[in-house]
Design a protein around this nucleic acid. Structure first.
Length: 482
DNA sequence: TGAAATGTTGGGGCG
DNA sequence: ACGCCCCAACATTTC
C-alpha cells in the first residue's frame, strides 16, 4: 500500500484541503506530519502569541484527526532532515503532499526538499495559485484593480472538497510533543482550530455580512469577519470564504447587501494579490517594491518608535490601536492603516521596522499580507497609496470612531474625556474637565510632520527641486520633530 | 482605502 | 434698491 506524508505547514484543516484530499483519494496510508522548524520558531519575525495559536491549532487538528482514525505526527528539526528520517523509518518510497507556501523561506525550503524527495505541491493556501493570475504575456500584475478583474474573469474557483470520512494512518510512528504552553487571557478572544473557524464564518455570514460595506471601517463596531488568524493558518479554506461570498452575492436581496458581499470578496482578492506580489517579487521582504523609494532618508527615531510600540504617541486612535494589538494580537484593519501611516509618514520611520513589529504581535501575521499592507501604507509598494496621502489621525478617528468608543475601550485614561475632544485631547481647555492627566501630549505635531514627509518623499519623487527642498529640510531638522 | 489649500457660489447683514 | 463684505457650503486642485 502506498504511503503519503501529508506535510502540514499552514493548512490546519480537514475540510477543502486539496493536499489531504488527493492523498486520501489515492487510497494511500496517510501520515499527517507537522515539522516544528527551529528556523521559523526562532525567527526574529516570530511571535509567542502566534505560536500559541499555532500549537493550540495543532492540538485541535490532532483531536479532529483522531475522530477520523488518524492522528498528528509531530517532529522537530530541519524539514529536509526530518522528512528523510521519517521516510527511512517507513521503509522508503513515500510521496509527500503539501499545500503551496509562497514566502521566500518556504519556497527555498520546498525547492530543497523537492530536489531530494517526491514532493507534490497543491493549491489551498490561496484561492488561486499565486502565479496563476498573470497578464497575457505572462508578467505579473502590480496594480490591484486590473489584477482583481483578471482574477474574477478566471471563472469559478471549483467545488469544496469534503472532509475525508476516514484517514488511514499506520500505528507506531513516533511523535514529539508540543512545547508546554502558558495560556494568556487574550487567547480566549481567538480560540484556535478549524471548528472555531467554521463557527466564526457562520456568525459572520448570518449577522455581519449584510452590513459589511459600511461597518467594516468602523473601529468601534464588531463589523469585520475577524477570520484573518484562521485564514493565516489555513484553519479556514480561503476558497470556502470566496464561495460563501459568491453565494451571498447571488441571493442578495438588495443593492446594499450585494455591495457588501462584493466588498468582502474584494478583500479576499487583496489577500490573493499580495500573495502574488510576494511570489513574483520576493525581494519586497527586504526592500521597497518601488526603486525610487529605496533611498528615503528615514528619521528612525528610537524614542518615537518606542512610544508607538507602547501606544503612547498622544494620538488617541493610534494609541488605542497599538494597545488593541498588544492586548489581543489583532488590530482592526482601518486601525492598521492609521498606525502604519502615522509610523511611516508622521514619525518617518522605515516601514520595515513597523512590519517586523506587527509580525511579532499579530495572530494573523503573514509575510505576504503584512508586507503588502505596510508597503501600501508607506507608499513604497505595488499600487501603493500615493506618497502625499497622509492620514490625519484626528480626522480618521472622527470618521471611523465617531463617539470615541474604540479609543475609550483601549485607552482607559481617556475614559471621561468628552466626545468633542476624544480624538484631540490636547485641545481641551483646562476648565472643561480635568481629565487625561496621565495621557501623553502628542509626540509630533501632525501638521508639521505632514509638511516634512511631503518634502522627504517629494525629494525622492522629483529630484529637480531638491536644492530648495534641502534648505527646507534643514529647517525641519531644527524643528521639534522626532 | 486622504487631506489641505484654493476657488466658487450664494445668502444675508449692513451702510 | 444696491454694492460690498463675510463666510458657510460645496467643488476643484494640489500635495
Amino acid at each position: 500500500m502506498q504511503t503519503i506524508i501529508w506535510w502540514i505547514r499552514r493548512d490546519l484543516r480537514l475540510r477543502d484541503n486539496p493536499a489531504l484530499h488527493a492523498a486520501v483519494q489515492a487510497g494511500a496510508q496517510v501520515i499527517p506530519l507537522f515539522i516544528l522548524d527551529p528556523k521559523l520558531l526562532n525567527s526574529p519575525y516570530s511571535s509567542p502569541r502566534r505560536q500559541r495559536f499555532l500549537f493550540a491549532g495543532l492540538q485541535a487538528l490532532h483531536d479532529d484527526l483522531r475522530v477520523k482514525g488518524s492522528r498528528l505526527i509531530l517532529r522537530r528539526g530541519d524539514p529536509l532532515a526530518v522528512l528523510h528520517s521519517l521516510i527511512a523509518e517507513l521503509g522508503g518510497d513515500c510521496e509527500i503532499h503539501a499545500a503551496e507556501d509562497y514566502s521566500p523561506y518556504a519556497e527555498k525550503r520546498d525547492a530543497s526538499v523537492a530536489a531530494d524527495l517526491p514532493l507534490r505541491l497543491f493549491p489551498g493556501t490561496t484561492i488561486r495559485p499565486a502565479r496563476e493570475v498573470v497578464k497575457a504575456d505572462g508578467s505579473p500584475y502590480t496594480v490591484f484593480t486590473p489584477y482583481s478583474k483578471a482574477w474574477l474573469s478566471r471563472g469559478d474557483v471549483g467545488a469544496l472538497l469534503p472532509v475525508p470520512a476516514r484517514i488511514n494512518t499506520p500505528r507506531g510512528i513516533a511523535t514529539d510533543t508540543l512545547p508546554e504552553m502558558e495560556m494568556d487571557r487574550s487567547d480566549t478572544l481567538f480560540p484556535s482550530g478549524e471548528a472555531e473557524a467554521q463557527r466564526r464564518l457562520q456568525r459572520f455570514l448570518d449577522f455581519l455580512l449584510d452590513q459589511y460595506a459600511q461597518a467594516r471601517d468602523r473601529m468601534d463596531l464588531d463589523g469585520t469577519s475577524s477570520l484573518s488568524p484562521y485564514l493565516r493558518f489555513g484553519m479556514l479554506s480561503p476558497r470556502q470564504a470566496a464561495l460563501m461570498a459568491e453565494f451571498a452575492m447571488q441571493k442578495a436581496a438588495d443593492a446594499a447587501v450585494l455591495h457588501s458581499a462584493e466588498t468582502w470578496l474584494n478583500e479576499l482578492i487583496w489577500r490573493e494579490f499580495y500573495f502574488s506580489v510576494l511570489a513574483h517579487f520576493p525581494y519586497v521582504r527586504e526592500m521597497s517594491f518601488r526603486e525610487e523609494m529605496r533611498a528615503i532618508h528615514w528619521s528612525n527615531n528610537e524614542a518615537a518608535f518606542a512610544a508607538w510600540k507602547r501606544g503612547e504617541t498622544g494620538y488617541p486612535v493610534v494609541d488605542a490601536a497599538m494597545r488593541q494589538l498588544l492586548a489581543t494580537g489583532w488590530m482592526h484593519n482601518r486601525a492598521r492603516m492609521i498606525t502604519a501611516s502615522f509610523f511611516t509618514k508622521d514619525l518617518l520611520i522605515d516601514w520595515r521596522w513597523g512590519e517586523k513589529f506587527f509580525m511579532q504581535h499579530l495572530l494573523d501575521g503573514d509575510p505576504a499580507a503584512n508586507n503588502g499592507g505596510w508597503q501600501w501604507s508607506a507608499g513604497t509598494g505595488t499600487d501603493a497609496a500615493p506618497y502625499f496621502r497622509v492620514f490625519n489621525p484626528v480626522l480618521q478617528g472622527q470618521k471611523f470612531d465617531p463617539q470615541g468608543e474604540y479609543v475609550r475601550r483601549w485607552v482607559p485614561e481617556l475614559q471621561s474625556v468628552p466626545d468633542q475632544y476624544i480624538h484631540a485631547p490636547w485641545l481641551m481647555p483646562e476648565d472643561v474637565v480635568n481629565v487625561g492627566k496621565k495621557y501623553p501630549a502628542p509626540i509630533v505635531d501632525h501638521a508639521l510632520a505632514r509638511e516634512r514627509v511631503l518634502l522627504v518623499y517629494g525629494n525622492r519623487m522629483n529630484r529637480k527641486e531638491s536644492g530648495s527642498k534641502k534648505k527646507l529640510l534643514k529647517l525641519f531638522a531644527g524643528a521639534d520633530l522626532p
